[in-house]
Design a protein around this nucleic acid. Structure first.
Lengths: 246, 246
DNA sequence: CGCTATTTTGACAGCCGTCAATGAACGTGG
DNA sequence: CCACGTTCATTGACGGCTGTCAAAATAGCG
């Protein structure tokens, strides 16, 4: 049965974890919850706008987002920020942290978040010894690399409108995969400055772009949520790859 | 002793392969050459401007570049090309090909190239069973991911001059690592259209940028080579990450 | 209701794309 | 050795996307 902590919205035993099935290490074996729970060192809460970890930090833990949104970013010499990716509940703060020595990017809480802390060595061993989990990790790494390639193509060759559309469609697809449910409206906590730093524009120009997306009836913003009104138009803008499959 | 083929510049037995130490699978074990040679299925020559493999192709082989330059690319719906990375001798045509089912990008020969073809299953098994090689692979994947992150930051936040400078400095560093020798002048076979498609500009604008790089005395182009005249200025332009290490 | 963070708007400038034409480089064949 | 074609690089004029700056409007929150 769920513990008191869980009823307050905090993580209790891994056996009841609602996002375990979404993690790299979870959803594969049936006896895993206990094993994972034994590796757990901490559960940490971080306020929005605070860094969870910083570029250059030595890595001793493996962090998974339990609730809220976060993002990976770097700061360039000129002082501008580039958001590398947004992180959703169940996703790790970086698969590279399984083996790297130091963070080569920073991670910041976008909303208030809760983070699960596993012992880095233990989870790495667990994943190495467990073939199913290892394969799953392999697959995750691979899809992440494909994502990166698409991202590079997008930043290099597509204009602001397309890039913003792509970010929104991508987010929608990721959320849909985990919820399954309502897909035309979904939470979207990033501010325009986050969108700007993610797609490589200024927040001012992102404002113009959102204006255009609303003016053409493609979507509407409602609080910190987005409702897609013309799905196919959105996807037409967002499509990066030629459909090679016939 | 080198075979007749090798004297003609073609790969003979892996034991004499000059680029084996640079590959993901090589340079680790002393008894490996024989094992690798048994996995070798073919040695293929491809002319410049021809595709070596195409997005969507099913993957049954693991390809390594033996000589020449190649590049990974995708084509966007509008028809524009984005070069994802340049491939140098000893590098594979994509680590994802170890486990993916289909190519999710194309690879084209930039110069005339020679490619070594290994059996995909056998080399994957070999790497999985050999811990040292596995760790090496892990490291390669990790540095590739870091490279991607830097690349995204660059495309999102830096202007054309900086992006071109970055590509050149990066190439120089990669070549230096393998040759060790003369680093201020090095081969650079990509045309300006390749540079443009790699950094996300038009070849016309790349021309202007090269003009500026020469006018400010940072480098000179000599045939298909580049000579760097002002290394520190080049690096100042190229630096993407803040030096987090104190 | 007042404060702060965020978004929007307008004017203007700069980086970069497009188009078209010229020029250089290189390989081929006569 | 030169003529010639092809590919590649350069140049100039112009336009559009996006950045910058400053100010106003809005939203969110206590």
């Amino acid at each position: 049965m769920p513990s008191e902590a869980e009823q307050l919205g905090l993580p209790g035993h891994c056996a009841h974890c609602p996002v375990r099935a979404l993690t790299v290490y979870g959803g594969v074996r049936s006896d895993e919850a206990e094993a994972i729970f034994r590796m757990r060192r901490d559960v940490r809460q971080v306020q929005a706008r605070r860094d969870i970890c910083r570029q250059g930090d030595p890595i001793t833990e493996f962090l998974t987002l339990y609730s809220g949104w976060a993002f990976r970013y770097t700061v360039l010499p000129e002082g501008s920020r580039q958001i590398l990716s947004f992180i959703l509940p169940g996703e790790s703060l970086g698969l590279a942290t399984l083996s790297a020595e130091r963070m080569d990017y920073s991670v910041q809480a976008l909303t208030d978040v809760t983070v699960c802390v596993l012992d880095r060595e233990e989870i790495a061993d667990y994943m190495a010894r467990n073939p199913d989990v290892g394969r799953h990790l392999q697959r995750e790494i691979q899809t992440y690399q494909h994502r990166c390639d698409r991202r590079i193509a997008e930043m290099g060759r597509r204009n602001g409108l397309q890039r913003v559309a792509s970010l929104i469609a991508d987010t929608q697809a990721r959320l849909k995969r985990r919820a399954g449910a309502a897909d035309s409206e979904f939470p979207f906590p990033p501010r325009q400055s986050h969108v700007a730093d993610a797609v490589g524009l200024t927040s001012i120009h992102v404002s113009r772009i959102f204006g255009e997306l609303e003016a053409t009836g493609i979507l509407r913003r409602i609080g910190r949520r987005i409702r897609v009104l013309d799905q196919s138009a959105l996807e037409r803008l967002a499509t990066t790859t030629i459909s090679a499959r016939q």
